[in-house]
Nucleic acid binder design. Structure first.
Lengths: 151, 151
DNA sequence: ATTGAAAATCTCACACA
DNA sequence: TGTGTGAGATTTTCAAT
């Protein structure tokens, strides 16, 4: 789907505060409230917008430990296998297949290092996982456009 | 701030759909709409919730290329130097100092591989950067709780 | 895309445990 | 401190234009 300038400004407004009223957004972009709603509905239907969510402070929710885990898979493992295997973990925030030596890069939030260790052991025990390689986040210096944590 | 079970369930509900009505959330967690709003307001005031945002499909906004870049810094580089040096790039979404061989892990969104290459060259040219090592995202299989892209 | 009206929701006051 | 109830203000939502 192709977004025009008006759509982009609406998405930008929603990105800053997804609970702003359509009328508010409308006055900012020069549209009436129903017009804004129609465009948002269209963006939702087309998949350009996939939903609305909350920005949380992971530390405030008790998820103080963040890590990136490289996954090295056994032969004949497809993206679907990786997703199905990892989506079950509530501690897993993002999963991406990547170029390079590893097959996938996984972002994990845990309450502490002990918790992370348990999660890592379970992930490493998945049948499609050959080995893993993790780095722990020391300081989340910048979290732009995104922030989230499992519940 | 300490969150109890009710708060966590409310945050979880908002993470799935931040535009659900307080009454809906209330019936799910066993509270009235005003009670839910009061807790959300408190979570906002305490900083546990930092706002509401929209989940977008980066590709629909024209940001089709995502990459993770490991930064190896010169000696005597502090976290502040890394943050100041990288925050200027609008393509940089997240910056974290990490354990392991690299000093920092940076998430970058670009419109295409050519765009990413230009950004990478500029980052690699920063005075505190000794070398970089990148992996490109092939498929963003899972983007839980939020996903965003630079505007 | 806008207008205007009806339905739903938000948001506050107050009362209660 | 935290909750529920009810009323008024606001917003959403859908016709008709």
């Amino acid at each position: 789907m192709r977004l025009n300038d008006l759509d982009e400004r609406i998405v930008h407004a929603l990105a800053e505060d997804a609970r702003r009223s359509y009328a508010d957004i409308g006055t900012q972009v020069g549209l009436s409230a129903p017009a804004v709603k129609r465009r948002v509905d269209r963006l939702l239907a087309s998949g350009a917008i996939t939903g609305f969510t909350v920005r949380v402070d992971p530390a405030a929710l008790g998820w103080e430990t963040e890590a990136f885990v490289e996954i090295y898979c056994r032969r004949n493992t497809g993206p679907g296998d990786i997703l199905r295997g990892l989506a079950r973990y509530s501690e897993v925030a993002t999963v991406s297949t990547v170029t390079g030596e590893a097959d996938a890069l996984v972002q994990v939030f845990a309450s502490d290092v002990r918790h992370f260790e348990r999660v890592l052991e379970r992930i490493a025990g998945e049948p499609f996982v050959e080995r893993t390689k993790s780095v722990l986040v020391l300081s989340p210096l910048l979290r732009r456009y995104t922030s989230g944590s499992p519940t």
